[in-house]
Amino acid sequence: MHEKMADKSIEVVLDSCLEEILCAGRKVEECLAEYPEYASELKPLLQAAEASRCAANVTPREDFKARARYDFNAAVADMAHNRKKRWFNYAPVWAQLVAGALVAVMISGGAVVAASGNSLPGESLYGVKLAAEQVEMGFAFSKSAKSELNADLANRRVAEIVALAETEQTEGIRIAASRLDDNLDNIAVLNIKNATSGGVLPPETQEPLVTTPAPSDQHEGGVASYDEYLASLGTQIPEMFTVDSDDSELVSSLKIKGLAGYQDLVSSMEKAPDHIKPALEEALVAFIRGYEVAIYNAGL
């Protein structure tokens, strides 16, 4: 059936047996017969795995599922309907730019643009703010200037996220986090070398900088460890933001800006109420991952 694994570790043999049991429906006894040299060690493990699998074989009630499916379909239809109405939020960037600029010029010149400076996602002037940023981007001519401006814009998104967290607007945080991700992606793509599209991933992304919540492994019970996770973030500055003597001007600048944004986000997470924390955590993960790739590409 498959090659003997006498020279393999118990972890590999166990996994091979589990694969056969979980995916091919084989019996525990069949696997034990295949690996007699491991049988005594494997047996209790496979039995525990089998017991876990049986206990985990639960399904939701059919009537609940039917009702939930109905509610979900209604919510999808509702979102689709609302989306059509919110043209401005989904119009192409050039259309937002033109519309935003026209509104700004027609109503009161630069006053609207200035007033839009502190607007947040979901507010009426936020589109104007984004349009003004696009104009600003149009005046950044070099790759380096565009990268710097994108880092500044990413930090503006961080400021928005902090403000939104204070007013407990989860959806707004997610919108700002998505734009933040775009800004950092732009830096990565602007500085890409020897690639046709997309960002170049740094080698260390195999191990995530921030896992989804990454509490202490020592924790007994698996609960209430989120606070430990937050506390640990406060004292650990990711190494990628440490400026090295041989860093280019752009890389140094990105690291300094990145660290400022990182500290603002962590500080906001520490103060935020529980229900806001998952959205802030997503924003923080996007921020760290985005900066990781951006700094790596800028340093190539």
Binding site: L18, L22, C23, A49, A51, S52, R53, C54, A55, A56, V58, P213, A214, P215, D217, Q218, H219, E220, G221, G222, V223, S225
Partner: peptide, 28 residues
Amino acid sequence: VELEELSCALRKLTPLQQEVISLRFSCE
């Protein structure tokens, strides 16, 4: 009872161990 036992035992594992078991056995 089976589900509660599993859940109770699972909570005594580290978060990463919990995650592996959950993904491997609940979702196969």
